[in-house]
Amino acid sequence: MAVVLETISLVKQFNGVIASDNVSLQIEKGARQALIGPNGAGKTTLINLLTGVSRPTSGSILLDGEDITDLSTHKRVRLGIVRTFQINQLFSDLTPLETIGLAVSERRGQGLDWWRIVGSRPDLVAEVVEILERFHLTDVIDKRTAVLPYGKQRLLEIAVAIACRPRVLLLDEPAAGVPEEERHEILAAVAALPSDVSVLLIEHDMDIVFSFADRISVLVNGALFVEGTPEEVAHDARVKAVYLGEELVDA
């Protein structure tokens, strides 16, 4: 399979703390890849580096073999690298309808259109409605995002990302903090992502990871520790030692 997104010896230091330690990661086309690791392992840091939210201390990032290390976030989004956030990053005063409408119009390159009224392109609205239906948000389209139930906000996080038509989608703990009875809606949304989109999923819940991923990368102390199929990772003694040990300590 062709590699879409790749990092080469990525290092990120925060005054002394090494958050990414020589990470060389590959994401293949259509991948269902999971990135796991204990709290503070550097998972979110890696996503920030991949999306250009922060710049690596050294190393490089390639998309389809082209170096994008110095590209700004919004340009990477145009190239198809899209993410969701572990902690909701939404527009609290906009409605889901406006939020998705904005994302779609930006993706279509109509964001500088200043003479047209929002919603005056029927094909755009149709696409927005389709996305809102797919993510079960039609009952709250007119509510300010700030007042939505938390589960709906998490759905909106993913819906916004999908509205950008990603080629590579980086999901940072999409179900984090969602109450048990609302989780399945998020998981169903993740499971139903278009198959041509390459997905990297960060998740702590091992049931989700093993049912979703066909490849798992384990990050420990900023470094890639083990990589392989779920089968291989599940039976890896080192992973058990680090990961389960960690869980035992947690418990």
């Binding site: 899209v82 964001g111 200043w114 929002v118």
Partner: peptide
């Protein structure tokens, strides 16, 4: 306009705005 909406989004959350390609 869509441009005006994007301004509101930038005001509200610049991090997310850039994450949708603005």
């Amino acid at each position: 306009s869509p441009f005006g909406l994007s301004l509101l989004s930038v005001k509200s959350n610049p991090l997310r705005s850039s994450a949708i390609g603005i």
